[in-house]
Simulated assay, not measured.
Amino acid sequence: MKNDFIMTYSQKKPAGAAKPDQYNEYRAQLAVDWLVKGNIDKYNFYKNTRPKFTALQLFELSNLLEYWVDDNKNVAEVEQISKQLLDDLRKKIHDDTFSRTGILLEVNAVANARLGHVDIAMKNIKASGEYATFRNLSYFRNTKANYLNRYGIILSAAGQHQRALDTLSMAVGNAISTPKTIATLKEVFQKVKGNSADVDKYITALQDESYKKIYKEVEKAWITVTKPAPDVTLTDINGKAVKLSDYRGQIVVIDFWSTVCKPCVAAFPAFQRLVNFYKEEPFRLFVLNEGEDAATVKPYMEKNGYKLNVLFDNNEAIFKALNALGTPQKFVIDANGNINQTSIGYSGSDDKEFYKLKAMVELTKARSSEKTSAVKSKSK
């Protein structure tokens, strides 16, 4: 009844000159909100009112469809919704500022592959290649890694199992990968080899190779002249004053971020993985928020399930003291409170971000140990 009323009202009371897009925005957001809640019927109801999605709304819709198809959920509905959106985008109905056409082509391709429509899947994954430039940018989370995983799924569905295995192995061996890549690789390995006896050993070898490459890259970026971390007062998410010197004796990673910075939050799953990896060691990771407050950040962290330690950089004190260049930017502080490493931007995938951070921490530990040994030798 409520939906009928809204529909009738919006038709009888079209947007006036003062607010020409008010009803479109209302219907578009209702469509997005219902799909996020998993109510596909309600989404279709509001989608049939022909709303024009903004760039952010289209981004949210495509993100949700990605999660569904990658998890093999609601596949038939994903195929239908992505096809409708692609048809609309060809007619330039929606705002595609964030180049979601390429993502929707990938999503539709995987959905068709899972539904057994291999020819359509191959056609659409090939068409998505027109958006390769955007795919290769390390801005949104796992853009290229997701593509390679989806391509592997489609190749395997087409019976090209060896080619799928080669594609996925290349992805893992170069850290253009996620846990989903590993899961797909295991399935394809079974099809190629006829058993899964050596799959874990095979994957571990690829991951070790990838980590070694990244460690060498991190080693080249080591800053030989140390500088002490500024000991300014920060505030945690509960309003408590915190100083980095409180954690002297531990390795500390700090990262500047904000909720509206896509590459910043793209790295958070890797941060959480790093925190879990070093939970038994003297290690801390803090995400230092710039320009926002607890009222904005706390609900954001809770909504997304992030368990990271948040600090607020009051008046950009530490940002300015470090001459930071922007967000995201990471600094690694050794146990003596000195900085030898910094890294700007997001690495592009969950695995690469984790390996890079792990390499930075391990290199800091190794160099600190070398210094300690050198001091002991001199004192003898």
Rank of each mutant, 00 (worst) to 15 (best):
A221V: 10
A221C: 10
W222H: 14
W222Q: 13
W222F: 13
I223R: 15
I223G: 12
T224S: 14
V225T: 15
T226M: 14
T226W: 11
K227E: 12
P228M: 06
P228D: 04
P228V: 04
P228C: 11
P228W: 04
A229S: 15
A229K: 12
A229T: 08
P230I: 03
P230M: 07
P230F: 01
P230D: 02
D231K: 06
D231M: 08
V232P: 05
V232W: 03
T233E: 07
T233N: 05
L234N: 00
L234I: 00
L234V: 00
T235G: 06
T235E: 03
D236S: 01
D236W: 00
D236F: 00
I237Y: 02
I237M: 07
I237L: 07
I237E: 03
I237F: 07
I237N: 05
I237P: 06
N238H: 07
N238E: 06
N238Y: 03
N238R: 06
N238L: 04
G239V: 01
G239T: 00
G239M: 02
A241P: 14
A241C: 10
V242D: 02
V242Y: 00
V242R: 08
K243M: 04
L244E: 02
D246N: 13
Y247K: 05
R248H: 10
R248F: 01
R248E: 02
R248W: 06
R248T: 10
G249W: 12
Q250Y: 11
Q250L: 10
Q250R: 13
Q250F: 08
V252W: 06
V252M: 08
V252N: 06
V253H: 10
V253Y: 09
V253K: 11
V253E: 11
I254M: 01
I254Q: 00
I254P: 03
I254V: 07
D255V: 10
D255C: 11
F256Q: 03
F256T: 00
W257D: 00
W257T: 01
W257R: 07
S258I: 10
S258F: 14
T259M: 11
T259R: 13
T259H: 05
T259I: 12
T259V: 09
V260L: 14
K262P: 15
P263D: 04
C264W: 05
C264Y: 11
V265M: 04
V265I: 14
A266M: 08
A266W: 08
A267W: 09
F268S: 05
F268M: 07
F268C: 05
P269I: 09
P269A: 12
A270C: 09
F271M: 13
F271I: 08
F271P: 12
F271W: 14
